[in-house]
Computed example of a mutant assay.
Amino acid sequence: MNMIMIIIFMAGAFAVQMGLGFLQIKHFSKAYAEMRRIGKVAIGKKPGKIRSGTIVLFAVSKSGRILKAKKMQGVTVMATFRDLHGFEDKNIRHLNEEDMTHCNKLLKAAIQDAVSNYKIIMSGGVIQEKSSLFRNMMVKAERMVAVKK
């Protein structure tokens, strides 16, 4: 009987997590659509494995001027997008450390990722996908199997 209760509890927790994840994705889509109506959108992220994750969105004009900035930073799926002040009217190509003095370390990393992504896309390049933890584990496992053959 206890095992059934544990399974029911785990299934319920999984369902709640899925629902909250869906709401967060919906919130991201809404924020992205709002920014997209303003201009091109540069997205930067700094995923958090143990610490909080961070996503930044910059609405950018054709000349590279930042029209609006938003950030989402938090540990849980309850994190929401908020306005990120201090970047309006600056050129995304020329952001530097001085422009980010009011930002924490994770936010700076996400902003630098957005700047890098913007520069790559605007020069006609393709952004390389970063390997996930699961993908890295699979590659190591494949190497170990290949060595044994």
Rank of each mutant, 00 (worst) to 15 (best):
H85G: 02
L84Y: 04
K119W: 09
N117C: 06
H102A: 14
I121T: 08
I111T: 02
T101W: 06
A114E: 07
L107C: 11
K105L: 14
C103Y: 00
L95A: 04
D113C: 12
K108T: 09
L84R: 07
R93N: 15
H102R: 08
M100L: 15
A114N: 08
D113G: 07
D83M: 01
S116N: 14
K108N: 11
D99T: 09
L95D: 00
H94C: 10
I120W: 03
M100Q: 13
H85A: 09
E88A: 06
Y118P: 10
K119T: 12
H102G: 07
L107P: 01
L84W: 09
A109K: 14
S116Q: 14
N117V: 05
C103S: 09
F87E: 06
L107V: 11
L95R: 01
K105M: 14
N104P: 12
D83I: 00
L106S: 14
N91D: 10
K108R: 15
N91K: 11
F87K: 11
D83H: 01
L84N: 08
D83Y: 00
I120F: 06
H94T: 15
K90H: 14
A114G: 12
V115W: 00
K90E: 08
I92K: 08
D99S: 13
I121V: 12
G86P: 03
A110P: 07
A114F: 05
I92D: 08
K119H: 11
D113E: 10
D113A: 12
F87N: 10
M100C: 15
D113K: 12
A110T: 06
T101S: 12
E98V: 09
I120Q: 05
I111K: 00
M100E: 07
K119N: 13
C103E: 04
G86D: 01
H85F: 11
E88H: 01
N96T: 11
F87Y: 14
V115G: 00
I121G: 03
Q112S: 06
C103T: 04
N96I: 02
I121M: 10
L106N: 15
E98F: 03
N117D: 03
D99N: 15
Q112H: 09
E97D: 15
H94P: 06
H94M: 13
S116L: 09
N91E: 04
L95Q: 00
L107F: 02
Y118A: 10
N96A: 08
N104G: 14
